[in-house]
């Protein structure tokens, strides 16, 4: 259970983390999503006590990071962006050192369990400097698991790994998520949406969005889009569509008698039946029809882009809130449209 209030950190005149507040519950997998330089790593460094915040406070399981750092740090296992490995030790020596350092309750059986979980049993007596990047990353994860801390913070755990290793690490994180609270950071959207229960989007040092991947996908759209492939004359099709108040957005392409276009209508409605009847009446068969929901990528770009529509942004944030006030606001905003 982590509570963060008003966290701020400057590097000189640059504000890396700007009054971020959030609350994390036990047993879920959280994802920090954001562009490079957004402040994800800095937030994680602040959470684990590597850096001191300029303002705000962090409470881990009731222990304040500034006042009782030892208790707070005992509860966290951290894998930083660059795994902190001593290259001149073997894997076994290194993990034994970590056990002693954290004063962890980790006997040979528990260590064996960690080694098996991270797939390190074959390389246990090899020097860390002779391991490949993937294996070094796994040693980093193993180091975070020592002592079975209730909270795991992993900064870009799959960076630099090949696709197979990425899948394995994701599986590992999913299995860890059942017993621990996991905080993950990544800029690979698919990874976050697959693995995480809740996503926190951070950009320019601020928390710009919070919610499950589905929630974000649903509420992020101001409209529903539909791509059509219709067989027929451009004029006929467009006339038929304009009769039901639909105007194509974006370019209309004509290839081999096939018309490709995209229409949109406000969220909450469903115009697919009307399109069917209208085009059927105009004798223009619909050969392909796809509804595109706003993907996490689009949400991400919308929320972190510089030229985002302020109204749309406010709507998203309001809809993500679970208070009745926020829901009312959202409902009235939709009615106004």
């Amino acid at each position: 259970m982590i509570e963060v209030t008003n966290l701020t950190r400057h590097y000189g005149s640059f504000t890396a983390v700007d009054h971020i507040s959030f609350s994390l519950e036990d047993g879920k997998i959280y994802g920090f999503l954001g562009p490079n330089g957004a402040g994800k790593s800095t937030t994680m460094n602040l959470l684990t006590g590597y850096l001191c915040a300029d303002e705000g406070n962090i409470t881990v399981d009731g222990f304040d990071m500034l006042e009782e750092p030892k208790e707070a740090k005992k509860r966290i296992g951290y894998l930083p962006e660059l795994p902190p490995l001593y290259k001149d030790m073997t894997v076994r020596e290194y993990l034994r050192f970590v056990i002693q350092l954290k004063k962890a309750d980790c006997d040979a059986v528990a260590l064996d369990h960690i080694l098996r979980k991270t797939g390190l049993t074959d390389v246990v007596d090899k020097m860390i400097r002779s391991l490949s990047k993937g294996f070094q990353q796994r040693v980093g994860i193993a180091q975070a698991l020592v002592g079975n801390p209730p909270i795991l913070i992993l900064d870009e755990p799959t960076v630099g790994l090949d696709p197979l290793q990425r899948i394995e690490v994701r599986e590992l994180i999913r299995s860890l998520g059942k017993e621990h609270t996991v905080i993950l950071s990544s800029h690979i959207l698919s990874e976050i949406s697959e693995v995480c229960d809740t996503v926190l989007i951070i950009a320019h040092g601020k928390l710009v969005g919070e919610g499950s991947p589905e929630q974000l996908a649903q509420t992020g759209q101001a409209s529903q889009q539909c791509s059509l492939s219709v067989k027929g004359q451009q004029e006929t099709v467009l006339n038929a569509l304009s009769a039901i108040d639909l105007v194509p957005i974006g370019p209309v392409k004509q290839e081999n008698g096939l018309l490709s276009l995209t229409v949109s209508w406000p969220a909450g409605q469903d115009k697919r039946e009307e399109i069917f009847y209208a085009l059927a009446a105009a004798h223009c068969p619909i050969l392909e029809e796809t509804i595109t929901a706003m993907s996490l990528e689009q949400i991400f770009l919308e929320l972190t882009g510089e030229d985002k529509d302020a109204q749309a942004y406010e709507k998203v944030v309001a809809q993500l809130g679970e208070t009745p006030v926020a829901e009312e606001k959202a409902a009235s905003a939709q009615e106004e449209e």
């Binding site: 460094n45 684990t48 006590g49 590597y50 750092p69 030892k70 208790e71 740090k73 005992k74 966290i76 951290y78 930083p80 660059l82 902190p84 490995l85 001593y86 290259k87 970590v98 350092l101 954290k102 004063k103 180091q143």
Partner: peptide, 14 residues
């Protein structure tokens, strides 16, 4: 340089 100070500073040691 090797960033292993992150390991030391995030551990429950003074």
């Amino acid at each position: 340089k090797q960033r292993t100070d992150q390991l030391l500073l995030c551990a429950p040691v003074t």
